[in-house]
């Protein structure tokens, strides 16, 4: 297993190097910092979503769920819209990135915990109902957000819209630093929980029997998930393509690959593996889209396309088995 992790790490280093070096012409002093910032942002987002998705799949006990599938991404735009709605676009743009991040993080974590609690209560163990309810609640949050956006002034509407797509082009240095701290803290927490998460994969009752009652672990894991997703989305915007699609499937692709590369229940291996794959997909994907194919489409659209197909495949395969 460790050999595979090393191979992944090499692959990640390779794609990062290629991302920095390919087509590096013109004023290097200008392009280099720009590319480095973008690389750091991609890396942070990839790791954050990967780790959050692994945690989420462990505490829900199934492998086709992701936080964004359950509407966590939609919450981000909702919080933004609500902020613009209450503060006005002038007041909103007066907020420093640090304050905005803190506000977003708090609101998303609080709402995320509520959302998850509601979903778990509604689903009561039925996985398909949980996913479906989650997707529909995600659609509902999106619809309410859009409704709110129409109620604010059309000019202010522009402010929100420019913020609500995943974007890796303009990244504020302070925001990057704050997010980096949040991602490091979140990842550290996840790592700290790794053995307890292993026990949870046995199911709720067996875990209780081994002295690891799921309830407290659920809360800790959820807090970590909210922290990571909030950090990723406020850094780069939600990863959903903004089209018809119910949600981003990025986390799903990452964990599906991670389970293929390292088929284990041990989070000590699964977590780093997923984190590496998350980085590789975002950086490598951006490299391919931007430098090699020269496509105008954001990477997220392609991820949604492939991810949706992977989701259907996993769902239908599970049934066949």
């Amino acid at each position: 297993m460790p050999r595979r992790l090393i191979a992944l790490a090499l692959l990640l280093a390779l794609s990062a190097a290629a991302y920095i070096l390919i087509d590096l012409k013109g004023p290097v002093a200008f392009i280099l910092p720009y590319r480095l910032t973008k690389l750091a942002a991609l890396m942070l987002v990839g790791v954050a979503i990967a780790v959050a998705t692994v945690l989420f799949q462990t505490i829900t006990g199934n492998r086709i769920l992701t936080p964004s599938l359950m509407g966590f991404d939609a919450l981000y735009v909702f919080v933004l819209t609500a902020l613009v709605h209450t503060l006005g676009s002038v007041g909103f743009s007066a907020l420093s990135p640090g304050v905005l991040f803190a506000l977003n993080l708090t609101a998303m974590t609080a709402l995320g915990l509520v959302l998850f609690g509601v979903l778990m209560r509604l689903a009561r163990g039925d996985m398909v109902r949980l996913v479906l309810t989650g997707i529909v609640i995600g659609l509902l949050i999106r619809a309410i957000t859009e409704f709110l956006q129409r109620l604010i002034d059309p000019n202010e509407f522009q402010t929100v819209q420019s913020l609500s797509f995943a974007r890796f082009t303009q990244i504020d240095g302070v925001l990057l630093a704050v997010s980096a701290v949040a991602v490091i803290v979140g990842t550290g927490l996840a790592w700290h929980l790794r053995h307890r998460l292993d026990v949870l994969s046995l199911g709720q009752e067996a875990a209780t029997g081994l002295g690891e009652p799921p309830a407290s672990l659920h809360r800790l894991a959820l807090l970590t998930i909210c922290l990571l997703v909030a950090a990723a989305t406020s850094l780069a915007g939600p990863l959903s393509s903004g089209g018809f699609g119910p949600a981003s499937f990025f986390g799903l692709i990452v964990t599906a690959f991670a389970h293929m590369v390292t088929p284990t229940h041990r989070h000590a291996i699964l977590l780093p593996c997923a984190a590496l794959i998350g980085g590789i997909i975002l950086i490598g994907g951006q490299l391919v889209m931007e430098r090699l194919l020269d496509l105008a489409t954001p990477l997220t659209v392609v991820i949604e396309l492939i991810g949706g197909a992977v989701f259907l495949y996993l769902l239908l395969k599970r049934r066949a088995a």
Binding site: S201, L202, G203, E205, G209, L210, G211, E212, P213, H265
Partner: peptide, 23 residues
């Protein structure tokens, strides 16, 4: 009693032995 101490006193095999992870 703390969950940990109790887990060293009694072991339980629950009715459903379905495990989602591949162990």
């Amino acid at each position: 009693t703390s969950d940990r101490d109790l887990a060293r006193t009694l072991a339980v095999m629950a009715q459903s032995t379905h495990v989602s992870a591949r162990l």
